[in-house]
């Protein structure tokens, strides 16, 4: 198991190095760190001096080495001229909003997709299954932003029962001003409902279908037939024997899809004016803050790599076959 974790970890490091190289090349070619630091009103001579001082005229690999070293040891990902703060700080203060959005959505997806997917597999001919399956095709074809706009129209404008924009009332989770959470106030939770629903319409159909098809496949296996032959109850056969085997592939996909969800938060954050990382990203694009853009790219890539690695390791713990393969 330890060998497996180490191997997986090394893979993650290699991936991060490749990504950082690409990112650094873009930054080096197109970025303007002098402007990021002192703004645009400096003479060419001053620029040259500052550039020398910052080591911008050193060989590429030396600069790349320094970039990685600063990023790893000091968490230094450059400065944002837009916010006039270190990039990492800007990203960290925007992260909680996005993370809470993703958590809320993941919650909705898990709570709904597991029972619905299992039900559709067990009773494929019932009207609820048919309805769920047709509805899921529609859900897949519906862009998130359109769902979001329609939800706002219905719940916020027409019926006026839920708020439409922003995060609402937030409280400081750790008392240090970094994690402002909306999960602890009624108003904050109310503001979460619509964004989370619209984001979940994207993944929910996918998971219901995935769980359904995996479960149906598992139900056909010999070991399930054997479980029946042992005289186990339907509850036990379905929920203990079939369900766990269904979950294994689903967990892997879930890890990947959480990542995809981060991409789609951009759309929901834009519609709901949600002050998260996606909103910050679009701001950075509009104001051409390449430095922040690239820092964001690094952070997103890193979190993806971490999530994927954790999911793989988690999978190893649940699936005994992988665990053994890892120790050998």
């Amino acid at each position: 198991m330890i060998a497996f974790i180490i191997r997986r970890f090394l893979q993650a490091v290699v991936v991060m190095l490749v990504i950082s190289l690409v990112v650094f090349a873009i930054k080096k070619e197109f970025g303007d760190p002098v402007r990021d630091l002192v703004g645009e009103r400096v003479t060419p001579e001053e620029r040259q001096q500052i550039a020398d001082k910052m080591g911008l005229n050193d060989p590429f690999l030396v600069q790349y080495g320094r970039f990685v070293k600063n990023a790893v040891t000091k968490g230094d990902l450059g400065r944002s001229f837009l916010y006039n703060k270190p990039n990492l700080e800007v990203i960290i203060t925007h992260a909680p909003a996005t993370i809470e959005l993703v958590l809320g959505t993941a919650f909705i997806i898990i709570v709904l997709s597991l029972p619905l997917g299992v039900y559709c597999a067990l009773k494929p001919r019932s009207w609820l299954s048919r309805f769920t399956m047709s509805f899921s095709t529609l859900g897949v074809s519906m862009p998130v932003f359109l769902t979001a706009i329609l939800l706002i129209y219905l719940f916020a404008v027409h019926w006026q029962i839920l708020p439409s924009y922003g995060r609402g009332e937030t409280v400081d989770l750790f008392g240090n001003g970094i994690w402002m959470t909306g999960l602890l106030t009624i108003d904050g939770l109310k503001h979460l409902i619509l964004p989370c629903i619209s984001l979940s319409t994207l993944m929910l159909p996918l998971f219901i279908r995935l769980i359904r098809s995996e479960m149906m496949e598992v139900l056909e296996t010999e070991y399930i037939k054997y479980a029946w032959a042992k005289g186990l109850s339907p509850r036990r056969v379905w929920l203990v024997h079939a369900f766990k085997n269904t979950l294994l592939p689903v967990i892997t996909v879930f890890g990947v899809q959480i990542g995809i969800m981060f991409a789609f938060t951009l759309l929901t954050e834009l519609v709901f004016q949600w002050p998260g990382m996606g909103f910050m990203f679009l701001e950075a694009v509009n104001r051409a803050d390449l430095s922040l853009l690239i820092a964001y790219l690094v952070v997103v890539a890193a979190s993806f790599v971490v999530v994927n690695t954790v999911v793989d390791i988690l999978y190893g713990f649940i699936n005994p076959t992988v665990r053994i393969a890892g120790t050998k």
């Binding site: 010999e222 054997y226 032959a229 085997n245 005994p320 076959t321």
Partner: peptide, 14 residues
């Protein structure tokens, strides 16, 4: 009781 044909497939792997 029943004994199935292929013991590799009969027991639940997890």
């Amino acid at each position: 009781s029943m004994i199935f044909q292929d013991p590799m497939m009969t027991l639940n792997p997890v």
